[in-house]
Every structure is written in structure tokens, then in C-alpha cells.
């Protein structure tokens, strides 16, 4: 009888979404981009394809990491989805004719190279890989 409430609490805790670990990523844009800060909600809307234009009217190009810890942390912390849910979100757009999923790059170096080469692009990298080739966006 005494154990039952404890078991219920344990079951309840197991059913809760996994706690998000501290995310060690940086959202990065091209150095020519005038934007310096973004709300976390704006970043979320950008990566879900709901905000598709920069404030100067230029379209936003997205780049994703193919997989890995940085991708997982970014998707969970900013988009509040599992990597699988995020993948399904863009597959729905792809196969229903309502959008094209963002390009993927295999890792931090490839994302930095893509962002450095495209003034309209936004991506995310391991914060330890941040260097002068790209500009870090401050998240509010």
C-alpha cells in the first residue's frame, strides 16, 4: 500500500519528456548580415519555415546539421521537438507539396563554410567551433 504512490510517482516521472540538457550550440549567420540578436521564438519560426524573410526583405536560407549532439541539442532546446519530430515536420511539407526541407551539412565546418558563403543563410554549430568566419547571433 505504501509502495503504490511511490510507484505511481516513478511511472509519472518516466512518462515526462526527457529533460533538456544544457545546449552548447551557437546560432550563426553570415558576417554581412545586419541582424545581431533574435528571440528564441523567432529562431524557432525560422527553422520551422514560418518566418522566411529577413527584416531587409531578403529570403532566409536555412542549413541544418545532418545529425549528432549539436543538432539534437538545438532541436530540443529551440524547437522543443525531438530530432525525429523535426524530421517528420519537414517530410510532411515535402510530400504534401507545401515546402522543401532545408539542406543538411555533415558537421560544424561544413555549416560554417555554407554560412560564410551565403549572406542569407542561418545555421547552428558547436559553440567551441565558433570562429571569425561567421557571426554569432545573441539569443534573447
Amino acid at each position: 500500500m505504501v509502495l503504490l504512490p511511490n510507484r505511481l510517482v516513478l511511472i509519472f516521472l518516466l512518462l515526462l519528456p526527457a529533460t533538456v540538457a544544457a545546449a552548447d550550440f551557437a546560432v550563426v549567420v553570415n558576417k554581412e548580415n545586419q541582424v545581431a540578436t533574435l528571440d528564441r521564438d523567432e529562431v524557432k519560426k525560422i527553422f520551422l519555415g514560418r518566418k522566411t524573410f529577413w527584416t531587409d526583405g531578403q529570403s532566409i536560407d536555412l542549413v541544418l546539421q545532418a545529425d549528432g549532439e549539436v543538432h539534437r541539442d538545438f532541436v530540443r532546446a529551440i524547437l522543443h521537438k525531438s530530432p525525429r519530430q523535426f524530421e517528420m515536420y519537414w517530410k510532411l511539407a515535402l510530400f504534401s507539396g507545401t515546402g522543401i526541407p532545408p539542406k543538411q551539412q555533415p558537421g560544424d565546418q561544413a555549416v560554417k563554410a555554407a554560412v560564410a558563403a551565403n549572406p542569407k543563410m542561418i545555421g547552428y554549430i558547436d559553440i567551441r567551433q565558433l570562429d571569425a568566419t561567421v557571426k554569432k547571433i545573441e539569443l534573447k
Binding site: 517528420m88 517530410k91 510532411l92 510530400f95 504534401s96 507539396g97 507545401t98
Partner: peptide
């Protein structure tokens, strides 16, 4: 409805 033909969605 828009994704109804894609079983995996």
C-alpha cells in the same frame, strides 16, 4: 489531410 498518402507521417 495534406499528408494522408504518406504512410510514414
Amino acid at each position: 489531410n495534406q499528408g494522408r498518402d504518406s504512410d510514414f507521417l
